[in-house]
């Protein structure tokens, strides 16, 4: 459904998107994960025909974004990162406007608007001006406006940014439902949990480049399936410790990482009691213990040397 090859978008000397490639199958929910400034919005803008690409190609449903933008526009729905609504109008008027713009009218429009208000859980407040809504309500309306014309492809650009955890949960549920119904979705976020929770496939983008791409499980496999255990160990005990643990089948001593001793264990939970008793036997306290399950954060850290939320 979506094919992107070596896409480049420059702003002056900044290469906001620097040769990324990926494809999204029909009905798939693709996550574009990356920190602020990574180039997510720029990518979405190119795919929405709002910005012309400076290199590479992108096609939606077989139509090239640069060559046949109006065909692309007919396929897509966009949910911008900003609350792109007429705040001085009520939710219903907003939806009516976009519906009419897409040529709907009469009963069909009324039904579609009610359906979307229901979906966004805004039927009660549909007559109130959007500016009186809470952040979560605005975000939900922002989302369903992008659906009014039943697009085949939906771009969701950080649709949960700036709202509380509960409101976020409702939006994620909504998106899950949508993607179950055959809609092709590109979902951008800098929240790792969201990408992990929602997406079938994930691309990790950083400084305009795709640093990792694949199924969620594949990506996690790249980090390895081992738990990372780190704890404080006095320097004098390092040799002793290495001798004691390097012979074991279920773990690898990886050495001192960021001032702490690190162990990679196939099953951290089983290893911990042994570690505890060894330390006690040496007359040491097990201090500053960290146990890290394999996840995308680790992957991201490994790939870029930076945290996602820096």
């Amino acid at each position: 459904m979506i094919q992107i090859e070596n896409l480049v978008k420059k702003f002056g000397s900044i290469r906001a998107v620097d040769g990324i490639s990926f494809s999204v199958q029909k009905g798939e929910l693709f996550g574009l994960l990356g920190p602020n400034g990574a180039g997510k919005t720029t990518t979405i803008n190119v795919l929405s025909t709002l910005l012309p690409p400076d290199g590479g190609t992108a096609s939606i449903g077989g139509y090239d974004v640069a060559g046949d933008p109006s065909a692309v526009r007919r396929l897509i729905g966009i949910v911008p990162q900003e609350i792109a609504l007429y705040q001085d109008l009520p939710a219903r008027d907003n939806l009516n406007f976009w519906g009419r713009l897409y040529g709907m009218s009469g009963k069909a429009l009324r039904m579609r608007v009610e359906e979307l208000l229901e979906m966004a859980d805004l039927r009660q407040q549909a007559g109130q001006k959007v500016e009186t809504y809470s952040g979560g309500m605005k975000r939900r309306l922002n989302l369903v406006v992008g659906l009014i014309h039943a697009p085949e492809v939906l771009y969701l650009d950080e649709p949960t940014v700036g709202i509380d955890a509960q409101a976020r949960g409702r939006i994620l549920e909504l998106i899950k439902e949508l993607s179950g119904s055959g809609l092709t979705v590109i979902y951008t976020t800098h929240y790792l949990e969201e990408a992990e929770h929602l997406c079938d496939r994930i691309g990790v983008i950083d400084r305009g480049s795709m640093v990792a791409l694949g199924d969620k499980e594949e990506l996690i496999d790249q980090v390895g399936d081992q738990d990372h255990i780190r704890f404080h160990l006095p320097t004098a005990r390092i040799d002793e410790f290495t001798r004691a643990f390097s012979g074991r089948q279920d773990c690898v001593v990886s050495g001192v990482v960021r001032g702490k001793m690190e162990l990679l264990a196939t099953d951290g939970a089983r290893l911990l009691p042994d570690l505890q008793s060894w330390m006690t036997a040496q007359g040491e306290q097990l201090e500053q213990l960290e146990v890290e399950r394999p996840n995308l954060e680790t992957l991201y850290l490994n790939l870029t040397g930076r945290g996602l939320r820096e």
Binding site: N45, S48, T49, L50, R73, P80, E82, I83, A84, L85
Partner: peptide, 14 residues
């Protein structure tokens, strides 16, 4: 600024 114009430009309107 609030991107309603972006929505319009990305819509079927020429």
């Amino acid at each position: 600024k609030d991107r309603t114009l972006a929505r319009l430009v990305a819509s079927r309107a020429s």
